[in-house]
Design a protein around this nucleic acid. Sequence first.
DNA 1: CAAGCGTGGTA
DNA 2: TTACCAAGCTT
Length: 351
Amino acid sequence: MRDGDESAAGTALLAWYDRAARVMPWRVGPAERAAGARPDPYRVWLSEVMLQQTTVAAVRDYFRRFTERWPRVEDLAAAEDAEVMAEWAGLGYYARARNLLKCARAVAQDHGGRFPDTAEGLRALPGIGPYTAAAIAAIAHDEPATVVDGNVERVVARLWAIETPLPAAKPELTALAARLTPPQRPGDHAQAMMDLGATICTPRKPVCALCPLRLFCAAAARSIADTLPRKIPKPEKPTRAGFAYVALDPSGGVLLERRPEKGLLGGTLGFPGSDWVEAPSPTPPLAAEWTEAPIEVRHTFTHFHLRLRVMVARAEGDGFTPRAAFRPGDLPTLMRKVWDAAQSVEWPQGQ
DNA sequence: CAAGCGTGGTA
DNA sequence: TTACCAAGCTT
């Protein structure tokens, strides 16, 4: 990209977007837009939070279920914590769900049910950082905010052939992205940059031949697009282990516990178990004849691998969740795997 | 401010 | 199978 080309590049990008924009449940289509419809800040916010570090494919159904169940921010604000955690289960990064509720309640109670209309005001709400604040301001309020996510970083790094590795290059990439942000249609521009990054200017094997910005791109000119942006290699993940305990009472009730708000899987529902360490000790939650499931659960988190031995027993006592009130789908993925493994235990006299 | 925080798809 | 990665935020 050469100085002075920013405007022409922006125009080419918007022309491509008008032609190629993907249909998504949280977007206002061209026809509705022509009829004067504006994006609903609640839906924009919800989709952007769900899309943090998460793929479009994974978000689609969650977005539909949330908006069907809670059509307005006031509805979500009035929901029970456990309901929201259950609906979020499986999507990951559960601090987002906890902050989602905090934010909805703040908007409902402190802002009269209306989201702030500036990036600065949005940034003050729980779970809304620089990216999400800019995205909502641009898409819902037409504020010329510069939206910088992983896609934008990649597109910009290639356009200007920035060879500084991330994350050190972030300030420079942000400044360059700002030069590209047009005063008109900033929301469409932001979504166009992200769509471009998701479909053409992809991390691996970018399809430069189809790129509307090819003529402006320094990396394409040098055929080094697929090597950018450079990144510091990540350290290897250690492997930890642990025990998980699935206790069933005579009526099929299940022993579950809610994890502490802070930390890994914070606020989610799961089976009791040991600490997850290099060499765990068994920590059964009650005295019973525990049988080990024939298959071990393997799961990988952001910063470590986990192997869980699943112990199953028939037991009785207080605090069991009735079978009718237990849905495995309310559990985070790790705990669903534990449940599935527990089903493979062969009992002496059948079920 | 570096580290902690999920999951599923893809090569 | 494993490693990498995706529309980041919080502490």
